[in-house]
Design a protein around this nucleic acid. Sequence first.
RNA 1: GCGCCCGUAGCUCAGCUGGAUAGAGCACUCGCCUUCUAAGCGAGUGGUCGCAGGUUCGAAUCCUGCCGGGCGCGCCA
Length: 576
Amino acid sequence: MSIFARIAAALDGLLDDMTAAGELPAGLNRSSVTVEPPRDASHGDMATNAAMVLAKPAGTNPRALAELIAARLRNLAEVETVDIAGPGFINMRLDRTAWEGELTAVHAAGADYGRSTMGAGRTVNVEYVSANPTGPMHMGHCRGAVVGDALASLLGFAGFKVTREYYINDAGAQVQTLGRSVHLRYREALGEDIGAIPEGYYPGEYLIPIGQQLAAEFGDTYASAPESEWLDLFRERAVAAMMDMIRDDLALLGIHHDVFASEAAVQSAGKVDVALKRLEGEGLIYKGVLEPPKGELPDDWEPTEMTLFRATRFGDDSDRPVRKSDGGLTYFGTDLAYHAQKAESADILVDIWGADHGGTVKRIKAAVQALTGGKVEFDVKLVQMVRLMRNGELVRMGKRLGNFVTLADVVEEVGKDVVRFTMLTRKADAQMDFDFAKVVEASKDNPVFYVQYAHARIASLGRRVKEAFPGELPSPDLSRFGAEELDLIKQMANFPRVVEAAANAHEPHRIAFYLYDLAASFHGWWNLGNDQPERRVIVADDIGLTASRLHLSAGIAQVIRNGLALMGVRALEEMS
RNA sequence: GCGCCCGUAGCUCAGCUGGAUAGAGCACUCGCCUUCUAAGCGAGUGGUCGCAGGUUCGAAUCCUGCCGGGCGCGCCA
């Protein structure tokens, strides 16, 4: 249990005692009582708002209640001083041995330091990437892939059971086009001159080998056969090949999904019929004509009857078609059933989507609400576009331009770890520039470098200490730490809180910012040794102090490793 | 016209789901530095948290309305 959790638990117990003693009324809601480090460290190590939050419902004033709570807090072994400040904050300073113990806890827990039971084993399904299987991964997919993967790791570390899922959009018009495009390449492989790839087909050269393979396997059987004889086959083969490519691309980033769910399979398994029937039974499906969209009317708009889902019942702005006027399913119609399928085996669903799909969040939330009766928690994370920059200039990409930068190219150029870390240096819903030069720059303003450098520096220390003091080191003596060393421990002790907060908010970027701050503090501590040699980690004539400071450094390295592991980034032993 | 996301220092961004005097990097100014791993260190300047109301002990954070930017807007995926 982390030191904050321990103090929070102690506070909770003491509030129980106060209730039993009649100092507080029974049944108070304590959910907004917090124990946190104060923003300003001069206020102490920890602060609680308990008095301010509880005063009103308890029918007393914050200062008076704070006095009562403070009196009991003073009896806690780990608490050294307690005072009341401002409108009723209770500030605590902990005994230094409590902090020393936290460093010991870091070493004892090792790779598990920061692991939480917050999730209590609840199951979470994180669906991410889900790029259309029509080509290789490009940079447009990259950020969602990294954010989703890091979030999945983070939730696992926070005590949830996590499923990483990829939804294969293998049922719509786009994969039909893919099948036809491969057929062209197939005819090409048979020796036919196909000329330029016509408009509306996928022109990518990555389809050539698939055409060749089909030619080798089937000869000219389908060369001039009607589409009905080959389209399904070619589509399936093409999708399978695309998914192999995509899996390879994702592997370059260290991303491996547990489940690849197929849109076509959702349909053929009858899941859509079941879901729609269920909604129909609740009067949530009807045939009707939608109002035309407000504002400028599309030229081809005409009123037609479709099968609609009453999304407006659940807060959407319009009811939404699940079947087209020709009776075929819409994307949403299947997606709705797909979410019902995911909800069968998860307590919590998380989707990671590109921001360009933001307009459809409400309808899918409405659908999940309707299908699960609100029993399944559902969050859609929108991830903003990444602008690729080279030498300060925007790298223009587009299907039309045919020059989109592939994920594999970027990983090859700057490395998996740099890509992953950089993608997490912004909130998901904020736009981001990815500059090829800046992300590999060796300087303080590059967080990737700065965090890795801290870890490498500590690794180097380990090697140096072995040279300076061959043989066994004495056990660390934590009582020799000064204020700066204790401050570093306090910052480390925040890691478990950051993990929980980040997992709770579904915001893996917080780990990256935390690590940057921790690295900065470590570098600052290190630099004390520049002016004052006696403040260095390695003190030539004091093996005991050296061992103690190395122990502290190693603790920081451990926390950095744990944080980086959540981000899917390897820690470096030395800078190259 | 509607919906979603966003608006914080000159620039790029954090801000722990409502806490105390709003933070970091860059840039700028002033010092220092030839090192336990070099790719620097320390300090300083810089803010009406888009604007206006509201909620309460307390708001950058929650609510409403404007202003500005991005994305999207029946039968695409």
